[in-house]
Design a protein around this nucleic acid. Structure first.
Length: 197
DNA sequence: GTAGTGATTTTCT
DNA sequence: GAAAATCACTACA
């Protein structure tokens, strides 16, 4: 019998302060049942986007068509389209009515690497194929079609295997012009898959 | 190795 | 009409 316990994170994991959720997601595994097969990866870089008082958060100016999922219940996926060609994956956090989420920026492939390579023909290096939010979605095959999935369901979720906590560092968030004073980017200092050093 | 910039289209003002 | 939670390519060191 196996001694490795795998556990899908429950909704209560996401129903907490966003910065805590972001921090605790590092080292956990994203699992996605795509039509081509199972994909999984170890999360090594995330960013927190926290409600109306965070000017960099999509929810800062209230509800819109795009961000309404962020105001819904925690434990759902928020996937948006950016720069005309990329998607970014987030997990919605905190109570219903509060617009917050964690952006998944980078991960290390664990399962389904061949599918990821097919989805990202320009980037075949295992250590870099998920190193960036746009690349992660492209390699996983995530699009607007996967916006609003329930992370307590079967198709997309995060699991914990009782892994040791990684060495976590924090820094300013990337690619934004406001709110850079908040150090809400967290990453595994020992991983080479982090998007920027 | 780093620095600068063009691609491409949805979303919001 | 402008900006955008990015990436890949080019030039140069």
């Amino acid at each position: 019998m196996s001694t490795t316990k795998t556990k899908r994170l429950p909704r209560s994991f996401y129903d907490r302060p966003t910065v805590d959720v972001a921090h605790d997601l590092l080292g956990k595994s994203i699992v996605f049942r795509s039509e081509e097969g199972i994909l999984s990866a170890r999360i090594v870089e995330v960013e927190a986007y926290v409600g109306q008082d965070d000017p960099a958060c999509h929810a800062a100016r209230g509800r819109t068509m795009r961000n309404q999922i962020m105001f819904g219940k925690p434990g759902f996926s928020y996937i948006y389209f950016i720069y005309g060609m990329y998607y970014c994956l987030n997990f919605v956090t905190e109570r219903e009515g509060f617009g917050a989420a964690v952006l998944i920026r980078a991960a290390e492939p664990k399962q389904g690497l061949e599918i990821m390579r097919r989805n990202s023909p320009g980037e075949q290096r295992k250590g870099k194929i998920l190193s960036g939010p746009g690349k992660l979605c492209r390699s996983f095959g995530l699009t607007r079609d996967h916006n609003g999935l329930d992370l307590t369901g079967r198709n997309l979720f995060v699991e914990s295997r009782g892994e040791a906590e990684p060495k976590i560092k924090s820094a300013a968030r990337i690619g934004i012009k406001t709110g850079t004073n908040r150090l809400w980017r967290f990453y595994d200092a020992d991983s080479s898959a982090v998007s920027k050093r």
